[in-house]
């Protein structure tokens, strides 16, 4: 089923999504991948605050190519979410609701999704030029020294994604995997 949703991704939003739904996301989304997740986790370990408002947040696992002049961002497709499995449950427990990436998730992540009424979306891997067009604004929040791995805040319009794991833990990949 096709659905149009806007951020923040509240529990009401995730309750209306089923594994296999095709969604178009509009609103503010944070961008972070391996190194930024590691830094956020280190900040928490040190008793510091997260650099983003995590409540009902959506995090897109992505590291863009540099923007050409006049454009908000370069190529911007999803990276493999599996690598963020080690960090994701803690952030979900703190209020994050949505993850956008591609690829399998661990049981710990699925459990954290169910526990927190979250959702995991897959964007089309390798469609970075197409997805770039759905990103209308981009700014660096922090960790600029990480280059392509800096933590960003972006505004997306009708960003296409598929619900892979819904708030009940139903996993689309498991339906298709051999």
């Amino acid at each position: 089923m096709e659905k149009y949703i806007t951020t923040p991704i509240t529990q009401e939003v995730t309750a209306g999504l089923k594994s296999g739904d095709y969604v178009y996301i509009t609103g503010t989304v944070y961008v972070a991948r391996d190194a930024a997740h590691r830094r956020m986790t280190e900040a928490l370990d040190a008793g510091k605050e997260l650099p983003i408002d995590i409540e009902d947040a959506a995090i897109y696992y992505m590291g863009p190519s540099p923007a050409r002049q006049g454009r908000p961002i370069g190529s911007a497709g999803p990276t493999t979410a599996t690598r963020m499995d080690r960090y994701a449950p803690r952030l979900l427990d703190l209020g994050q609701k949505a993850m956008i990436g591609k690829g399998n998730r661990s049981k710990e992540v699925v459990d954290a999704i169910v526990r927190n009424h979250g959702v995991y979306f897959a964007a089309v891997g390798g469609a970075g030029a197409l997805l770039s067009g759905c990103i209308k604004e981009s700014e660096i929040v922090c960790y600029e020294d990480l280059g392509a791995e800096a933590l960003l805040k972006i505004r997306v319009e009708n960003f296409p994604a598929v619900v892979v794991i819904d708030c009940n833990g139903d996993n689309l990949y498991e339906h298709v995997l051999p």
Partner: peptide, 8 residues
């Protein structure tokens, strides 16, 4: 002229 994939 946007890279096909962001992972160049």
């Amino acid at each position: 002229m946007i890279p096909i994939c962001q992972d160049t």
